[in-house]
Nucleic acid binder design. Structure first.
Length: 429
RNA sequence: GGAGAGGUGUCCGAGCGGUUGAAGGAACCGGUCUUGAAAACCGGCAGGUGAAUAGCCUCGCGGGUUCGAAUCCCGCCCUCUCCGCCA
C-alpha cells in the first residue's frame, strides 16, 4: 500500500510512477476525491463526538433536573447525528480502503523504464552452456524413461498439471530441498521456519495477493482459509502487527513449503513436464530490514539465490525487471533463470524483490529505530531460493548422459546417500 | 465436537456504567547517589489520525443498549483445563 500522504501531496509523482508501470494514472484523482470526502466526514464526526464527550462528562454533576434532562435530550440528538454520519463514513472508508489496496507499488528510481518483459535487462549471463555430443532430451522424456516422474498417474489422481515424483525422482527433490535449506541456514545466515500452508485472508492482503489476485488462489470456503501460493505469505506475516527493535534487523528467514496456484491465467501454457503445476515446492527467503539498507539487501538476496545455482553447477543468468514487468507489489525485482539444455530455454527459478514499505504498510510491520523513537514501517524483501520443479528440470536436462541416465551434481551427493547417478527403474546408483 | 475458565499497555495485574487511555508492580530509558556496580530515590515510558502539548479513535473482533461502556447485552475468534476423537 502506498502512503496516502504521498498521493495527496505528490499526485504527479505517483501518476508518473503508475504510467511507467503501464497502469492508469486516473486512479490517483479518484482516490484523492474520495480521501477529501472521507476526511471532511471524519472532521465533522470528531467535532460532534467531542461535544458529546464533554457534555456527557458534565451531566452527572448537574443538580438541576430540568437542565439535566435537556442536556441528555440534546446529546441523544448529537448521538443520532453521529450515527448517521458514521454510517456514511463506513461506506466511503470501505471504498477508499478497497481502492488503496488495489494501487500497485511504485517503481524504484533505479529501475529501467520499459513496456514489458522484452525490455528487461540481462545483467549477467553465463557464457558457457553445457555441450553435448548427442541431442539433449527434454526432461519429460528423460524422466518418463527413468520412471522418476509419473505424469499419467498424476493426472489420474488429481487432474491436469499434477504429477507424481517416484523413486530417485522423489529422493532427488527431497535432497535438493535439504541442500538449499542447509546452504541458506549455514552459509547465508537465515533462520529456518516451517509455516502453515493455509492462511487467513488478512495474511494475503498483507503480502498483496488479495484483493487483486484471488483468482490464482485456492480457497476453502467452509473454514475460510486460503492455500498459500508461496511461503512469502506466511513468513512475511510472521511479524504482522509487530513493532521490532532496530537491533533485531535484518530479520532473515528461509522456509520450505509446497505452493498452490490455480494458474487459470496460464491455461494452455507450459503444460508439458513439470514447469508449471498447481502444486509445487519452493524454498523461499524473506527479509525484514531497515529502509536505508533495503537496496543493498536486495543485492545480497540475489546473491544468496544465485549461490544455489553456482554450487549445483547449473548455468544461470540474471535479469533486472523493467518498469513494465514489475509485479504489483515490487519496487525493484531481479529474476534468476537457469538454462535447461533439453527444452533449450531459460527457466525462471527465483524472483527477488524489494517491496520497500509496501507490504509493511499492509501487514503493519514496523520497527523502532531507537528506544523512545516513533515506530516506522520497515522494508520487506523476498526471493525464491529456489523453486524446486525448475531446478529439477535444470538438473535433469543439463546433467543427462548419452545413455539416458542423469548424473547427480557433486554438491548434492552427500544429501543422497552418496549416490552419483539416476538410472532406469527410478534407481540411484 | 461437548463442558468450564479466561482474553486489559513490552510483561504481570487492578478496574466491572461517569475526568480510567486506563491504578499498582516489573522491565526499559534518563538522572541523583556511588571509585564502579547493585540498592534507594526522582523523572519518562501504548498505538493510530493530526501541524498540534488540541480534538477524535483503540482495553480480542464485530454489533447493540445508554447522554456516557474496558465495565451491561448478543454474535464470533483465540487461549487454558477436562471429556471425546485422532497422527
Amino acid at each position: 500500500m502506498l502512503d496516502i500522504r504521498l498521493i495527496r501531496e505528490n499526485p504527479n509523482l505517483v501518476k508518473q510512477g503508475l504510467s511507467a508501470l503501464g497502469e492508469d494514472p486516473a486512479m490517483v484523482d479518484n482516490l484523492i476525491s474520495i480521501d477529501v470526502k472521507r476526511r471532511e466526514l471524519m472532521t465533522e464526526i470528531d467535532v460532534l463526538r467531542a461535544e458529546r464527550n464533554t457534555v456527557s462528562k458534565e451531566i452527572p454533576r448537574i443538580k438541576e433536573p430540568g437542565e439535566k434532562k435537556a442536556k441528555i435530550a440534546a446529546m441523544r440528538e448529537v448521538g443520532d447525528k453521529v450515527s448517521a454520519l458514521e454510517a456514511e463514513l463506513v461506506s466511503i472508508a470501505q471504498s477508499f480502503d478497497e481502492q488503496m489496496l488495489r494501487v500497485p507499488n511504485l517503481p524504484h528510481p533505479s529501475v529501467p523504464i520499459g513496456k514489458d518483459d522484452t525490455e528487461n535487462v540481462v545483467t549477467y549471463q553465463q557464457q558457457e552452456l553445457p555441450q553435448f555430443d548427442f541431442e539433449p532430451k527434454p526432461h519429460w522424456e528423460l524422466a518418463e524413461k527413468l520412471g522418476i516422474i509419473d505424469f499419467e498417474r498424476g493426472v489420474k489422481i488429481s487432474g491436469s498439471r499434477f504429477y507424481v515424483l517416484r523413486g530417485a525422482g522423489a529422493a532427488l527433490q527431497r535432497a535438493v530441498i535439504n541442500f538449499m535449506l542447509t546452504l541458506h541456514t549455514t552459509q547465508h545466515g537465515y533462520t529456518e521456519l516451517y509455516p502453515p500452508y493455509m492462511v487467513k485472508q488478512e495474511a494475503l492482503v498483507g503480502t498483496g495477493n488479495l484483493p487483486k489476485f484471488g483468482d490464482n488462489l485456492y480457497h476453502d470456503a467452509e473454514e475460510d482459509l486460503w492455500w498459500i501460493p508461496t511461503a512469502e505469505v506466511p513468513v512475511t506475516n510472521f511479524h504482522r502487527d509487530e513493532i521490532l527493535d532496530a537491533s533485531e534487523l535484518p530479520v532473515k528467514y528461509v522456509a520450505y513449503t509446497a505452493c498452490f496456484r490455480r494458474e487459470k491465467m496460464s491455461a494452455g501454457r507450459d503444460v508439458r513436464g513439470i514447469k508449471r503445476g498447481h502444486q509445487f515446492d519452493k524454498v523461499e527467503m524473506v527479509k525484514l530490514v531497515t529502509p536505508e539498507t533495503s537496496v543493498e539487501e536486495l543485492d545480497k538476496l540475489v546473491n544468496d539465490a544465485i549461490d544455489v545455482a553456482k554450487v549445483l553447477g547449473l548455468p544461470y543468468r540474471l535479469l533486472q525487471m523493467c518498469t513494465g514487468d514489475l509485479s504489483f507489489t515490487a519496487a525493484m525485482k531481479y529474476d534468476v533463470e537457469l538454462w535447461a539444455a533439453g527444452c533449450a530455454e531459460w527457466l525462471e527459478v527465483s524472483s527477488c524483490s524489494n517491496f520497500m514499505d509496501f507490504q509493511a504498510r499492509r501487514a503493519n510491520i514496523r520497527y523502532r529505530a531507537e528506544a523512545g523513537a516513533k515506530p516506522e514501517y520497515l522494508h520487506t524483501l523476498n526471493g525464491s531460493g529456489l523453486a524446486l520443479p525448475r531446478v529439477m528440470i535444470a538438473i535433469m536436462e543439463n546433467y543427462q548422459q548419452a545413455d539416458g541416465s542423469i548424473l547427480i551434481p557433486e554438491s548434492l551427493r552427500p544429501f543422497l546417500g552418496g549416490f552419483s547417478r539416476i538410472v532406469e527403474g527410478a534407481k540411484l546408483e
